[in-house]
Design a protein around this nucleic acid. Sequence first.
DNA 1: TGCGCCGTCAATGTATCCAATCTAACGGCA
DNA 2: TGCCGTTAGATTGGATACATTGACGGCGCA
Lengths: 226, 226
Amino acid sequence: MTGVPAVSGPVAGGTASHRIADALRAAILDGGYQPGERIRQEDVAARSGASRIPVREALRLLEAEGLVTLVANSGAWVARLTLAECAELYQIRERLEPLLLRASLPGLDGAALGRMADLAAAMESLAGDVDAFLRADREFHLASYAAAAPGETTQVIGRMWNRTQHYRREFTRLASRRASLDATHLEHRLLLDCLRRDDADDAERVLVMHIRRTRLELSGHPEIFG
Amino acid sequence: MTGVPAVSGPVAGGTASHRIADALRAAILDGGYQPGERIRQEDVAARSGASRIPVREALRLLEAEGLVTLVANSGAWVARLTLAECAELYQIRERLEPLLLRASLPGLDGAALGRMADLAAAMESLAGDVDAFLRADREFHLASYAAAAPGETTQVIGRMWNRTQHYRREFTRLASRRASLDATHLEHRLLLDCLRRDDADDAERVLVMHIRRTRLELSGHPEIFG
DNA sequence: TGCGCCGTCAATGTATCCAATCTAACGGCA
DNA sequence: TGCCGTTAGATTGGATACATTGACGGCGCA
């Protein structure tokens, strides 16, 4: 229940709906709920000590974020993606993340780049711990965008990361077993180099290739989406 | 209340929340509600013959779409954009719409291109009627994407169009008064030509320039965002 | 006269209760 | 024995009623 830096996280004020939505989101991202798993309103209500009304609003919120699928008069399930849907989210990322990176680049200072270097190094040594790798990878990329003014682009990209989180976990599990994250590590270093050189064009290119390669490798593992 | 081809339109099942959300969305897009205007839950409930519960869920939905701004314990307002926020949405469009156009291009047949040509011609003669122009422009561009499999990209782009609708209307009002939509018309013809030639790269380029020029012209009219 | 406190009111947030709908198990029938 | 209609249960959707929060205006005081 801890650890994932929630993108649309505990920002919103004290209303119960938001608290519940935050808790559910964290549970889904951490794998406490699996894709396809049913979410019963009363269960959530009981666990959060509230009535079903705020739970319903929380579910609506998560549906809008794409994390939950609601069917009228039937129920709520943790959203699952087909391979094609997941690939589409990655294509959106390929187009939008370079935009955000470009906006962030001028504001990235030495401290931010240092933190990113630490994370990149950590990922290379963390080959075994999938969840730690996921957290570091997420923080690495989000850190590269952190100097951009938060706005719609950040929101959209955050939703893409959240929606694909489970499949990234499964893929990383596979890849780490075969010790085949070398390309990832290399691209992270390349990206850092572009940022240090303040070269936005190169950074965009590297980032596009990084996301695209991941997408193509994901497409090679349709069994993840079974 | 009619006319706007709602992007996230009356798709969803019979639940009252969705009906109310559809009605509110249409009202906002048509200008029945102005940006910054307050939306009272009881008003909407009374008008739609339902209680406040489904109204609240509808408002949550529209908040997620970016059309409504909710403040806890305070109320709901029709979302308003600053010039910077609007420009950001246009930058997202610059990156994503070419992607969608490329996906749609192979499936565009003669009928679709013919319809687009009709709409382009209509826009050129419709110089006076702002709302008719807006409808035609929207249908023109959405038609160019219609052959792509509906997915997240379509959704995101639709939301961008919806959120900027009001400001496009105001801008068009200004531009049509000065008869300065010539560049728009020209770009529409160029785009159609690329599509007829089945040239995806050129089409992407023209579309990017089309959206970017609009963004820059919008930036020249900060008074719209007062 | 201007600032700040307090009371009233309106609008939202939440809980409880009832109705409508879907699911699944059961039994009848071919 | 397999299929289908029926019925009972569970679960969600919605309405009403109450609690809570925030806003506005009046009053007192400096």
